[in-house]
Structures are given as structure tokens and as C-alpha cells.
Design a protein around this nucleic acid. Structure first.
Lengths: 143, 143
DNA sequence: TCTAAGATGATATTAATTTTCATTTTCAAT
DNA sequence: ATTGAAAATGAAAATTAATATCATCTTAGA
């Protein structure tokens, strides 16, 4: 059985956990994967409400956590900002460049750094699982 | 004028900002730099209270923020844990290995990664200012 | 169809951080 | 040293995001 779409992955996770499919989960998943990256619970709540005005904030919040659990979303916390969520599906791991002036996020990929990180962990007896690299600075536009 | 000690750096920052020196600031600075790394506001508050029982939580909190502003402290937020503060003085930048099981922090230094990070930022038009690298995994003891 | 378990939505709670404000303290100008 | 304006403090309240509670509704398997 191949699991191609986020929808299928989510449905699979749901059933494996003995949970149930609901219209709300569908709506949230759809909104999440068609919204812009780095969305907050608040923002996603607003988006989902345009399709399903009866939906509650807590439901969006709960399901974003489920999406994180099954690997379809990543939570990003930057400084004192509220948590943001990033859809994750079939893409390489990436790091973030964060502009200290305008707050813009840029995603970057560098396999050399990835490898060095794994090596660094192993040298210290750590079995690396995941990592988070954030580089803060001033972006091209803000300079 | 050389500024050797954290105390001098702090005093200098205070006066530059048009702020004032107080006994509380002294007490907080002293406690912070003689306490263990990765302390929470709560914990530092407890420590400072042993020297100055009248001190308020908000004062400790406010001054920890000042210490961050002037570069003598770093705030570390890991997952859903409460913020921790790390004294920063005359040491090299380091990254953190964080055990997913026992929560232990290990500090590591790797200049190669540092350089690659700067390069990566510059390639993307970013002027790097600082960065944060956290590698999550399982530590030697927990394996 | 029926029913037990899960999900939802509204609300309350939690917990950390930040703000408010009356009072006290600092420090530069006298 | 005295004064006074501005800043700092401490206690308490407010804010904020995240999470829990719970009555009701929905799902999905028997």
C-alpha cells in the first residue's frame, strides 16, 4: 500500500492510533497544506473558518499537534513569537535564515552542514535524531 | 578603558542606556554568574533570595532581560520547557546537544560548522549576526 | 440500528511572562 | 549635603498562548 498524499498519511496515522476521521480534520488538513508556510494556530483557525464557520479554536490546535506527531508538520518557535507550523511533506530537511529586522524566514538546504552535525553528535556519544539550525541576521532587502 | 568583568560590562551598559545601578542588579548579576548554567528565572529568583530576601520576582526577570540585551546572557528555549538563561562571557559560541530522553544539555564547539553557517547565510544575501544550533538525540547514558 | 469511544466546541484553567502602579531609590545638579 | 526628576523596585494584576475540562455530538464497528 503506497501512501502518497498528506491526506493518506494522516488518515493512516489516525486509524493506526485508534482515532476517528472527521470533517474537521479534513478541513484543517486541506487548509494547512494550501496555506502559506509558517502559519500560526490563530491564522490557520481563521482560514479554516472560511470553509467551516462552526469550527473551534481548540480543534485546530489539537489537530495541528496531531499533524506534528505524524510528521506532517513542524513546529517552529522563534524567540518570543508564538508557535508557527510548517507543512512537511516529501521535502528535504532545511534550516532557517531569520531576518532580525523584518522577521522574514528563508529556507536553506546544505547537506555539508547536515553531515557535520551528525558527525559532531556522534563524536559526543549522541545518536542524532533531528536538529534545528536558525541563523539570525539581516536580509538582503533590509540591509 | 578595558572592560574585563561581567560586572563592568553590565555597569557600562547600564550607564550607556541612562539606567541606574542598584543593589538588586549587583545581587542578580553575582548570583547569575556563580550559579549553574541553564537556570530558569524561578531558580535564579530562589538563589538571589538567599542573599536578598526582599527581592521581587519581576526584578529578577527584568534584569535577566537586561543581561540578554547587553550580551551577558543567552536565553534558551527548548520545546515546551520554560526559558532558561545561560551566562555568556568571554567564551566561544557553542551549540547544544539535547537528549530527548533525559533532557540533558551538552555544549559542543565546532568551528567548521560555524564557518559553513556564515557562508550559507552570505550566499543567501544574509548578513549573519548569530545563530542557534540544537541537535536532538539520545545521549550516551540513555542509549 | 445501536452503542461505546472518540471528537468537538465553548469555556475554564494553567503557567509563564509582562505590565501596572504606588513607593522607594538613585544620581546629577545645585 | 540637599533636592528633585527620573528610574527601579516589589506586589499584584493583566496578558498571552497553550492546554484541559466537560457536556454534547459524531463516528464506526458490532
Amino acid at each position: 500500500m503506497t501512501m502518497n498524499t498528506p491526506r493518506e498519511i494522516f488518515a493512516n496515522y489516525i486509524s493506526k492510533q485508534g482515532l476517528r476521521n472527521t470533517q474537521q480534520r479534513d478541513d484543517i488538513l486541506a487548509a494547512f497544506f494550501s496555506s502559506e508556510k509558517h502559519i500560526t494556530v490563530e491564522e490557520l483557525f481563521s482560514v479554516v473558518k472560511t470553509k467551516n464557520p462552526a469550527i473551534g479554536y481548540a480543534t485546530v490546535h489539537r489537530n495541528l499537534n496531531l499533524l506534528c506527531e505524524c510528521g506532517l508538520a513542524d513546529e517552529i518557535k522563534i524567540g518570543k513569537q508564538k508557535a508557527r507550523y510548517e507543512p512537511k511533506f516529501g521535502q528535504k530537511h532545511h534550516d532557517h535564515l531569520i531576518c532580525l529586522r523584518c522577521g522574514k524566514f528563508t529556507e536553506v538546504i546544505n547537506s555539508k552542514i547536515e553531515k557535520l552535525q551528525d558527525k559532531l553528535a556522534e563524536e559526543n556519544g549522541f545518536m542524532p535524531v533531528r536538529h534545528k539550525l536558525e541563523i539570525y541576521g539581516i536580509c538582503r532587502e533590509c540591509r
